[in-house]
Write a protein that binds this DNA or RNA. Structure first.
Lengths: 139, 139, 139, 139
DNA sequence: GTGGTCTAGACCACA
DNA sequence: GTGGTCTAGACCACT
């Protein structure tokens, strides 16, 4: 389904099947990392070039994602040094996080229903889910 | 997050936040319905125009989704009558379904991890999930 | 009767009198080019916009033709780069080509019969046919 | 490729692959029959119903074709009796016929070129063409 | 500059 | 009233 990159406290996974723009997938994953607290002020992000190589996409696409997050004050670029999580982080933390979890859950339950899986089977699948199934272990 | 339509055995939900093209979201939901067996050969889909009104999008967008599925042999059109699930459905049923469930699960666990929810919390949230939270009841 | 475009190894001709949808005429000509071997894996097609200008039709119409062929695995799109004949081409080559030739011949003989031309006259006309009568020379 | 009907001096063949509207295919075949002289003033056409059954299409479609030809003075309907080739036939006979033959030839040569058949092969195929290959015999 | 998505709206073929 | 075709034009993703 995708390609994954792991580095400096965050790993990226692209879902090619969704049709969602790549730069937006990257933005969302950084946002989520910040919201959840896994990414903290001062943490360094992968360089544009290394990430481009790892995800096999054009550097401009990553630059666009980083650029937008910089505009929104979530990232800061120190020339010649790299890209970091900014000091000044937007306030609305806790609610945002809960809302995002709820949304992700809703999307998931909706899709599982469409695929014919009921609550029991979903619970069973998740219990059987192993950290390290490719994209759960690292980060 | 979205708008929903319910009719003739399938309901559609659009996720505006994902960035995924609307016509592709529709395609995926029909595919899933067919794979899971909820949509069967001969079932009639909502008309292009009625679905366009319900989802508040342009009819051409629905036509594009239906059109792609017709090219792929999943839908069949009877001019002046409507759009139906085709007789000739591709074979690879069971495996496809499992693969899609696994993929959806992977995407979900990945996103929940990014958001800082661990397996225990996920299980708790799903157990608390009520059918009828907007998108679970009908179908 | 039509407008013609020549570029990158394929030329397009639209027949306005037939009533056949323009996008389907384009599809058929690309299919034929692939079947006959004149179009090979990796060959680049005219850009949507340039072809639209040449044929004096709307770019969306070309996009629709290319799109259908992409769904069927005959074309591949590289965003920002162009549209190409796909690697993975369906197998049934030889039979398909013969069948298409037979069909075209049948259509033609049928139409000539309706128009009152017998076999002798048809042979005479074809022998007199000159390469370069507008649509025979290039390629 | 099609379905065929034979009756009262004209046989109809529908080409489903072309995408050309059915009613227009019918019109063209009647026009051609008249132009070539095979259909003469007073000749009776198949009834709408019988033709609809034979070609497996909706009677309205045939009614539309007959109706348009009636407007153009090529057909005449005698209530309760049937549809006939009209007395008053449009003048531009000879040139029209030649032009149509030339066009059909051009289309055919163009398509054969696309399919990779050269003049020699075309001549060979036509010489081998047998009356009675399904659509050449009757009428 | 490449293709992709979506809208709005007109007109056609068919049942 | 159903879907199909085409246009014009806006905006986006990606190279």
């Amino acid at each position: 389904m995708n390609s994954t990159n792991t580095a400096e406290g965050i790993s990226f996974t692209l879902d090619e099947t969704s049709g969602a723009p790549v730069y937006r997938q990257i933005i969302r994953q950084i946002e989520n990392g910040v919201l959840s607290g896994r990414l903290k002020t001062g943490d360094r992000l992968p360089t544009i070039r290394s990430l481009a190589v790892d995800l096999k996409i054009n550097p401009n696409t990553i630059a666009k994602a980083y650029g937008e997050l910089e505009i929104r004050g979530i990232l800061a670029t120190r020339a010649g040094s790299g890209t970091y999580i900014a000091d000044k982080r937007p306030e609305p933390e806790e609610d945002m996080l809960e809302a995002k979890i709820r949304e992700a859950l809703g999307r998931f339950m909706r899709e599982m229903r469409d695929l014919g899986a009921d609550k029991g089977e979903i619970l069973r699948l998740i219990r059987a889910w192993e950290d390290g199934q490719g994209k759960w272990s690292k980060g």
